[in-house]
């Protein structure tokens, strides 16, 4: 890193970590709200009726693997390997997009099966939590695409590994949140109606 700082840590990276610390309380609140309402499904479908565990397992797996491709992108850039850096960034963005596509599919299926946003406290909490996560993933995709664009403009070189690393931190964090959501919301036995 270029600047001499008191702690020797870069401003940007430290700021990202502080931000991620803050995000823990954001997702914590959303997850707790969901837990509070998971059996408040009123007249609508219950979580146990509607979750498609095999399907979500696949998309969870996709997101998990995008973390691997993200570190590989960073590792490539650290070695100055621009080509592989682009390749892995692109793969990461695509895997993210597949995950989002899966979420869109899941949401539309749920709506078709009678679980709208306003159906019950459960439905509102479910869509809000997973929606917030989806927005985070989408922002990550936008950032990765921006990295790719600047790479093709010749601006993403070995000097900028830290930028990639920081966006990577964000990306892994979003992945880690999904690790929790997948277990706590999907896999823990859910109430049925």
């Amino acid at each position: 890193m270029s600047e001499e700082t008191t702690t020797g840590l870069s401003h940007n990276k430290l700021a990202m970590w502080v931000f991620l610390g803050s995000e823990c309380l954001l997702f914590g609140a959303l997850i707790s709200t969901y837990l509070l309402y998971r059996n408040k499904f009123y007249d609508g479908p219950a979580p146990g009726d509607i979750f498609d565990i095999p399907f979500t397992s696949v998309s969870s797996f996709v997101l998990l693997m995008s973390s691997l491709t993200m570190v590989l992108a960073l590792s490539a850039l650290q070695k100055g390997d621009i080509r592989n850096n682009r390749l892995w960034l692109l793969t990461t963005a695509l895997l993210g997009a597949v995950f989002i596509g899966g979420q869109v599919y899941e949401f539309t299926t749920f709506i078709r099966e009678g679980l709208g946003y306003t159906t019950s406290p459960f439905s509102s909490a479910f869509f809000t939590l997973t929606g917030f996560h989806g927005v985070h993933v989408s922002l990550g995709i936008v950032m990765i695409m921006s990295l790719l664009i600047s790479s093709y403009r010749g601006k993403l070189t070995k000097k900028n590994t830290e930028t990639v690393e920081i966006i990577g931190l964000y990306w892994h964090f979003v992945d880690v949140v999904w690790i929790i959501i997948f277990t706590v919301i999907y896999l823990v036995p859910n109430p049925t109606s």
Binding site: L14, G21, E23, H172
Partner: peptide, 29 residues
């Protein structure tokens, strides 16, 4: 969670300051 944070997010190799902020957020939450 631990594996991703330690390896992919490099907390194992990076400054303790980063771990502190992250752990503070997690423990508090």
């Amino acid at each position: 969670f631990f594996i991703v944070a330690a390896w992919f997010m490099h907390l194992r190799f990076d400054s303790k300051m980063f771990t502190r902020f992250f752990v503070a957020g997690i423990v508090l939450a």
